[in-house]
Design a protein around this nucleic acid. Structure first.
Lengths: 155, 155
DNA sequence: ACAGGACATCAAGTGGACTTGAGGTCAAGC
DNA sequence: GCTTGACCTCAAGTCCACTTGATGTCCTGT
């Protein structure tokens, strides 16, 4: 137990469940910060644990580290987020999370349908569509792989 | 319009929305098969389109191509899956899909809670826990991190 | 006969999120 | 003083799902 309230990379790694290499990597990306001792070892404030938790939450939501970095850039780099800050960023992530859930549920519904009816006339089966990848609406040709259009006349 | 019922890689690519390179890659992995013309060009049966659709569905569920290959190995490589076969593999994928959805919903519930109460005493906030486990997004080695155990006594 | 495009192979590149390895430093205990 | 282990940096490796590039062949239309 250290007397001061700064944590070594090993301690942070242990408590966060992340590898030291991951922590150094996050620091390179600017996701977290650290101070150094006279001997050049990293020292972290306890708040880094919360920050890491926020990062992990965002990863669960499906955000990339780049996107997370952008969100984190809007709050104090050294402190744990305030209530208002946390509200703001978690609210910002909600739509992405909702979309992900909706996409998966739609997929499941189709799986159910296909199981139930044994439907193999997949022309109209939306299992075939990439309803993942939120933000795909227009009838635009060749956006991000607009898989299986009407040209699919098999069967 | 071809008289025979075999498809060129270009046709399959167009109809499936996949790039020819992806089709060749899938063939390398054994996910699909093709015959060759005298001039060494690939020729696909129409059933390959269904097979590709199944592959895509599985990817949406979050399975890796290896896992998909394992599932596809249990059915006829050349034919479209029968009703029973489709039932079997789609049913097998259900649990994975359910788990993914449940994990995301749990995450959302926690996000809600945190927004609602402004909770920053994250000790008990399961946002911090990796209820993901299976089907987590993002590649890279080192899965199954047991993030943030009770050692996390911040705040 | 020949141009053009679709197709072939094989090697290497891409990107995200890290890990691993080599080689050196710091600090505590014996 | 010496060993040990945690730590440092920087370069390179890994995994996945492909794509890109180089180089060469097949085939259809004019």
């Amino acid at each position: 137990m250290k007397a001061d309230d700064l944590l070594s990379i090993g301690e942070v790694a242990h408590r966060s469940g992340l590898a030291p290499s991951a922590l150094r990597y996050y620091e390179d990306l600017g996701l977290i910060t650290s101070t150094r001792t006279a001997g050049d070892r990293r020292r972290y404030r306890r708040a880094v644990l919360r920050r890491l938790a926020v990062i992990r939450s965002a990863q669960n939501v499906g955000l990339s580290l780049d996107e997370i970095a952008a969100a984190l850039a809007t709050l104090h780099p050294e402190e744990a987020p305030t209530k208002r800050e946390w509200h703001r960023i978690s609210a910002a992530w909600r739509p992405a999370l909702d979309a992900r859930i909706a996409a998966l549920q739609a997929l499941r519904a189709n799986l159910d349908t296909c199981i139930g009816c044994g439907c193999l006339s997949m022309r109209q089966c939306s299992l075939y569509n990439p309803q993942d990848e939120l933000g795909e609406t227009g009838p635009g040709p060749r956006r991000k792989v607009a898989v299986l259009d009407p040209a699919y006349d098999d069967d």
